[in-house]
Write a protein that binds this DNA or RNA. Sequence first.
DNA 1: CAACAGATATGACCACGGTCAATTAAGGAG
DNA 2: CTCCTTAATTGACCGTGGTCATATCTGTTG
Lengths: 198, 198
Amino acid sequence: MVMERPVQKRTLETRARLIAAAEAAVARTGFEALRVEEIVLAAGVAKGTFFAHFKDKDALMDLLIGSRIDAHLDAIETAPAPRSPEDLVDRLMPLMTFMTCERYVFDVILRRSGAAAIEDIGPIARTFERYVRVVSTWIAGSTFRRDVPPDILAEGVQAFAIQVMALRFCALHVGDGLREPLLTFLDAWLCPRVRPSD
Amino acid sequence: MVMERPVQKRTLETRARLIAAAEAAVARTGFEALRVEEIVLAAGVAKGTFFAHFKDKDALMDLLIGSRIDAHLDAIETAPAPRSPEDLVDRLMPLMTFMTCERYVFDVILRRSGAAAIEDIGPIARTFERYVRVVSTWIAGSTFRRDVPPDILAEGVQAFAIQVMALRFCALHVGDGLREPLLTFLDAWLCPRVRPSD
DNA sequence: CAACAGATATGACCACGGTCAATTAAGGAG
DNA sequence: CTCCTTAATTGACCGTGGTCATATCTGTTG
């Protein structure tokens, strides 16, 4: 007879130990310096066990980074509709600051923001959908332009945010903050001031 | 006495052989499957020699991919100003198709599009500047909106192009072409139709 | 309880990018 | 031509992510 076995308690414990060890290591040395070896040693399991729980190192990163992004979204999603592009930028700033805390983190985010197959859509990819949903809702309740649907506008906001973050790691533009350039784009995107005769 | 020695002929030959071997391998199996070992064997040099010529594997990829992007830009830069967003999309399509020919290629492009230090700005990063310059020139000669400077508009075009290409590798949107979604964005970006009273 | 089946864990092993002290070639000076 | 300095090349070696056949554990069934 076919028996569907529930996940063993042991499994959850091991997984929790791995994640805890990883978080601790990140807190100590940041994301980039994280080594699978290090996690496995701290968690007291064999290397192979790590890969029984996570498809690869990126999958763990996805989880850790994704949960931080989610925390940022939790903090802002219930905010009222922004009154201006400045408002919008203010809300997005903490998230963007986190996303650019390390070059490596930003790379992982880009790599994981879209998944090749439905079955391996990871936490980060989900946060990207959520991001668009949140921003779209804000825009729907705002006084920004109405000639384009809110979800398209929201995707545009995401595109500009990524553009600006990428610029931050570019030698030519380093030192420029995130805020000012993003504001330039969002102002033009959300509040176009073309003359009607044009 | 201080003698500045010119680069030896041998060096150029070795470098040329490495690049030729790499190009041949790419033609055979694509970018992703490229192995340093393979290149080095085909070129008849030791592994260490490879890294004497290229900082790392990514640097070679940067070169190969960058030169292809440049070829695409060569082909379109002298075109006259686009009359419509459709026109603009048409011109950008071949380049975008190349950039998304392999997931790995797109990843390299993203990773290399900005350089951490001035001294290691690579070919791809340069093509990104060139891209913006070309599009900016087009826009300056077009009938698109005038309330935002052409170079900002051009950077926006780049941001949307990247957004759309990223979407292409996303399971949820696979199958959507590049053209239609990009057109949606560029229409809203370049030809906003807000009512003056808004 | 014993026997069993499937889920978990193990660690030796591999693939591949990258390093570096040692070696060899190039070509100018005498 | 020989000597000498610097550039170029070599390949054994390393770090790290990832695999997989084997061993162990767990909960179930009779």
